[in-house]
Design a protein around this nucleic acid. Structure first.
Ligand code: FES
Ligand code: FES
Lengths: 146, 146
DNA sequence: TTATAAAAGGACCCCGTTGTCCTTTTATAA
DNA sequence: TTATAAAAGGACAACGGGGTCCTTTTATAA
């Protein structure tokens, strides 16, 4: 459903949030290890996120990644949007060049329902909400470390 | 959501069904044109489908593709299964190595719902049902041809 | 003020999916 | 029985997403 890099991005942001709540600013190496992603690739993804201002970073000794604007939450949709665009929310499930209510493919009704439902989810759900679930021990960020 | 080749496969099968109902057995060239896919690639996909006996074919002059066992309908799930496997129905939406009810990621509840819903759809829906919609003019196989 | 630690950035590579081309096999029409 | 039309199959090419490596910039601690 989502691109691998988008999944890495979401997990990375969740981990940054968790560490921020502990007063820490994790760096690329720590993040990569925790989200089980290649360090160099994680760096690229974090770059993309900071370039689009979804995340802040500090260079130099003692630097790392953190959220500056902690007032407004970050939706998964915002993350998906900058990482891979929103084509997947508008594609035709049957493979036609576009989805069109007025000239539907034979899968339109059924496909549209799940596609729109997923769209709703990512618009409602936020990095902070996911992080909170993990903080409370209701969900995990990874399996098999520690 | 689905691989491009899977979408081609589904559209190809629908077209074959439509032509079969007209008493015709379309060939690769005709199918490729109608589903708007590259002919050589369509040939590969049709090969895969016949090798797995989802479709029958006749070689030689006057040959083409057709359904032999018209008694039992062909579900979209069967097509997906031979074309790309069923990993997508079991993946974790958060990118963990596996989805696990007992040790869930923070997206599990919401993601599982849409994933399972899509799974239901492709298990219920059949090539014949989609074809029938098109035959009745309730849906289209393509846009921009004739 | 210098050594060090960290992010930013550019250039590049790898591999799976998508897609092409050519030859071989098989059946039918003439 | 031969020419032709069609699917089957093998080998390979192209493209994009995922991934690596190395250099440059920037900040801080000593
Ligand atoms: S037209 Fe195919 S999903 Fe809407
Ligand atoms: S554990 Fe992530 S979707 Fe089930």
């Amino acid at each position: 459903m989502l691109a691998k890099s988008t999944e890495y991005a979401i997990r990375a942001l969740v981990f940054v949030q968790l560490r921020n709540w502990e007063g820490k600013r994790p760096g690329v190496v720590e993040i990569a290890k925790e989200i089980e992603a290649p360090p160099a690739f994680s760096a690229k993804i974090l770059q993309t996120l900071t370039r689009h201002r979804l995340l802040d970073s500090a260079k130099g000794r003692g630097g790392g990644f953190f959220f500056n604007n902690e007032q407004n939450e970050l939706t998964l949709y915002q993350v998906i949007h900058v990482m891979e665009g929103d084509a997947c929310f508008h594609r035709c499930g049957f493979g036609l060049k576009s989805c069109n209510n007025d000239n539907p493919c034979p899968l339109h009704e059924q496909y549209k329902e799940v596609r729109d439902k997923f769209f709703e989810i990512v618009q409602e759900e936020t990095i902070q909400a996911l992080s909170e679930k993990i903080r409370k021990g209701e969900a995990v960020l990874n399996r098999g470390i520690g």
